[in-house]
Design a protein around this nucleic acid. Structure first.
Length: 775
DNA sequence: TAGTTGGGTTTTTTT
DNA sequence: AACCCAACTA
């Protein structure tokens, strides 16, 4: 058994067990990809299993690519037939063959979230929904959640349609879905949901895949949602050779539908499952692991697990508190520069992690100022940038003009003098004649009321024809170049005064080379294939993470990665855990954040720096928050402080947190005089306000500070008066019904009211917003 | 039709 | 603070 030789005992156990359901609980850094790839290689090379019968499903293209590459390397020839793909790519592949069984056309298009939003905007218009009352994003989120649970419009209406504000959502869902259907389009969630629907409605199709995929593996199983679970369950239900790998402690995607119960209840879903735990960590020092273990053990809903390592290196976890977010950023970068200068590490060894994208700014500013190379992960994906989406829309239109959305996107880009009213007229004409939008454009002369605009529309149609001609005669890249030059797209950006014009031009060049590369690699390929690939790929394979740059990213995007030196920043209650999760009053939300903290800590291989700021600008207001509870959960003997009074502040945060108290979403306001009088603010806040805060901690000894997080704001801006009810009163809410007022607290611009509703439970709301009626 | 201004909102991300 | 959207004005 040579392939499995290098594995440790547990890993070996997991990789060699092939028949029947298996759950591999793989702690952070425990070598799960290694187990998966070696398991596949072992099956093919040593057990004579046909690669044709194996399937491995991942969440990201990156993970799929990595796994494919590693399997290729171990197995060599003969493993091409293995399906190693993302959930979405797998489903597209299946649907392209069989979706006609459930009434779609096999050459459906895939809408990304941008497209979905445009559709929803139209839906809102048609249904006359006031965006002040209900937002597109809210409805889209609701629909996405419904789809994650495999609920179609009808089921949704049945389940929720009678609830107060769900009726409109149900209607919007219905129309949204019909619009997609009319455009022969699927959104990302449909890809999964409709594959499940297909399998359920056509057992003969399901059987094809059950017979083919006798061995199924799923990576990052803790991230699966209900629809994905159902998909996997159906596929595996015949042969039952399902091997899932995951870590319940790293489940951090609840907000996008991941259901942690899928992994927690695996043994009930698949009776007789073998469970293997991988707890040996090959990444971090024991101190870092101890810190991670100490934090995560505060979660209740989890499989017990403790990471350990052979490593001896015993540097403590650094923890520092700085006066402001800006100080935090500059100190962190100082530290990076120092270590680089001393030759301890290269820029590429550092990663700066934070909870929210907004926190990247201060770090970026510092890095730019000091000329340190960095790479900011996140932001806008390549294929969702405006200029790229425009060009893709052109390509879609010349490929087949069936995607109305794409045509509408570019009909006036660059400006051709075709405005919203003209588009509306063409649209109405198309609808009443049962034709596509582009077909209607071609008949511009016959569209009533277009008048002068008809010439412009025809001009656009002619241009598209010209591009099509070029596509046929000279190929895809040539056509793209022609689009860019003939429409004057390049010039328009160049002459614009936007300050990211240069970036956008560079993106266009990048797009040209991407298409050129595709053409080189797929001489037989066509535009449709390229567009499909683009639809399922969010970003270009990032240029191999240029190994000499400091990396900046959210903790979410750091999942699955590791770095020699990690700075975990913004560790304050209200920031991380975020105020949303603190306020929801739902323990599960805090547990999710705690898992996020666990992910963050376990990214560090050698050195971990944790930091917090006493005060920080959040959405234009300075808020003062205590040190994150997650830091307080780390035993002090694991921490070392570099600054003067970090420990004092930590103790102080601890003492303050020992009283049961809730932090408000917008920290409570205090008038500036009172704040100044209470000591902490005097120096701290004044310094922060004047932008001259010193990097040394402000207090020498035990600080005296307000009992609660506090925001400094321009004094005297109370928007709403005190409500007419008091603690203990019975009140009525339009949605939640009757309840008892538990607390009323003064907040930044309003009063914050905690109410225990008879039906809906405890909620926190703003008095001015909730309009509670005393009863 | 197109550019400007003001008001309201604000986690996390993949496909 | 920054961004997006809608309404307003030239």
């Amino acid at each position: 058994m040579s392939i499995l030789e290098g594995l440790n005992e547990r890993q070996y156990e997991a990789a060699s067990h092939l028949e029947g359901p298996q759950l591999i609980i793989a702690g952070a850094g425990s070598g799960k990809t290694r187990v998966l790839t070696h398991r596949i290689a072992h099956m093919i090379k040593e057990c004579g299993i046909d690669p044709f019968n194996i399937m491995a499903i991942t969440f990201t293209n990156k993970a799929a690519g990595e796994m494919r590459e590693r399997v290729d390397r171990i197995v060599g020839e003969g493993c091409e037939a293995v399906w190693v793909m993302t959930f979405h790519a797998t489903c597209v592949r299946i649907l392209r063959r069989h979706i006609d069984h459930i009434g779609y056309d096999n050459n459906f298009t895939i809408y990304d979230s941008d497209d979905s939003k445009s559709v929803m905007r139209e839906v809102f218009k048609k249904l006359n929904i006031d965006t002040k009352y209900l937002k597109e994003a809210t409805v889209l989120r609701a629909i996405s959640n419904a789809k994650d649970e495999c609920l179609g419009p009808n089921e949704y209406a049945e389940n929720y349609g009678r609830q107060y504000d769900k009726r409109e959502i149900a209607q919007a869902y219905e129309l949204y879905q019909r619009t997609l259907k009319d455009n022969n389009a699927l959104d990302f969630d449909d890809l999964i949901r409709l594959t499940v629907a297909l399998f359920k409605r056509c057992p003969e199709v399901l059987e094809i895949y059950q017979n083919r995929f006798k061995y199924i593996m799923v990576d990052e199983y803790q991230d699966t949602n209900d629809a994905q679970f159902e998909l996997v369950r159906l596929l595996a239900s015949k042969n039952k050779n399902l091997c899932v790998v995951g870590d319940d402690d790293q489940s951090i995607y609840k907000f996008r539908g991941a259901n942690i119960k899928n992994i927690l209840n695996f043994e009930e879903h698949f009776p007789g499952a073998k469970v293997v735990k991988l707890e040996q960590n090959y990444r971090s020092t024991q101190n870092i692991l101890n810190a991670a273990n100490a934090v995560i053990k505060n979660n209740r809903g989890r499989k017990n697990k403790e990471l350990w390592t052979d490593r001896e290196d015993e540097e403590l976890v650094h923890f520092n508190v700085y006066p402001s977010g800006r100080d935090e950023a500059s100190e962190v970068i100082d530290q990076i520069e120092r270590m680089k200068r001393r030759g301890v590490a290269d820029f590429g060894d550092f990663a700066i992690l934070y909870r929210t994208n907004a926190q990247s700014r201060e770090f970026e500013e510092q890095l730019v100022r000091r000329n340190i190379p960095y790479y900011l992960v996140g932001g806008v994906n390549f294929y969702s940038r405006r200029e790229i989406k425009d060009l893709l829309a052109y390509l879609k239109t010349i490929d087949n003009a069936r995607d109305d959305l794409a045509v509408k996107r570019i009909i006036n880009v660059p400006k051709r003098g075709i405005g919203a009213t003209s588009i509306e007229k063409v649209s109405a004409f198309a609808e009443s004649n049962g034709m596509g939008f582009f077909e209607a454009c071609a008949l511009a002369e016959e569209v009533p009321g277009l008048n002068k605009a008809a010439v412009k529309v025809s001009g656009f149609v002619d241009q598209i024809a010209e591009f099509r001609d070029c596509l046929v005669k000279e190929g895809m890249t040539a056509a793209l170049k022609k689009i860019i030059s003939v429409t004057g797209y390049y010039e328009e950006i160049k002459n614009s005064d936007e300050d990211d014009a240069e970036d956008r031009l560079a993106n266009i060049d990048e797009m040209i080379s991407t298409l050129q590369q595709f053409e080189n690699e797929h001489p037989e390929g066509n535009l449709s294939q390229f567009l499909e690939e683009a639809a399922l790929v969010s970003d270009l394979d990032s240029t191999d993470e240029d190994s000499s740059r400091v990396l900046l990213m959210t903790i979410h995007s750091a999942k699955g990665l590791e770095f020699p030196i990690v700075f975990l920043c913004g560790m304050e209650d209200g920031v991380f855990p975020g105020y949303m999760s603190i306020n929801s009053g739902n323990d599960e939300d805090i547990e999710e954040e705690r898992r996020l903290a666990y992910v963050a800590i376990t990214r560090a291989k050698d050195i971990l720096y944790i930091s917090a700021a006493r005060g920080r600008m959040v959405r234009g207001e300075t808020s003062y928050n205590p040190v994150s509870r997650f830091v307080r959960e780390i035993p002090e003997e694991l921490l070392s402080e570099d600054g003067d009074d970090t420990k004092g502040y930590l103790d102080y945060s601890r003492s303050r947190a020992s009283e049961p108290e809730r932090y408000s979403s917008i920290p409570k306001s205090v008038d500036i005089e009172k704040a100044a009088a209470s000591g902490i603010f005097k120096k701290n806040a004044m310094a922060a306000l004047s932008g001259e805060s010193k990097r040394k901690p402000v207090f020498e000894k035990k600080p005296e500070a307000p009992r609660q997080p506090v925001v400094l704001k321009k004094a005297g801006e109370m928007k709403f008066g005190k409500p007419d009810y008091e603690v203990g009163d019975r009140v009525m809410h339009i949605k939640f019904g009757e309840g008892t007022v538990l607390a009323i607290e003064k907040a930044a611009r309003d009063y914050q009211v905690t109410v225990n509703f008879d039906m809906a439970g405890q909620k926190i709301m703003y008095a001015g917003f909730a309009k509670l009626q005393k009863c």
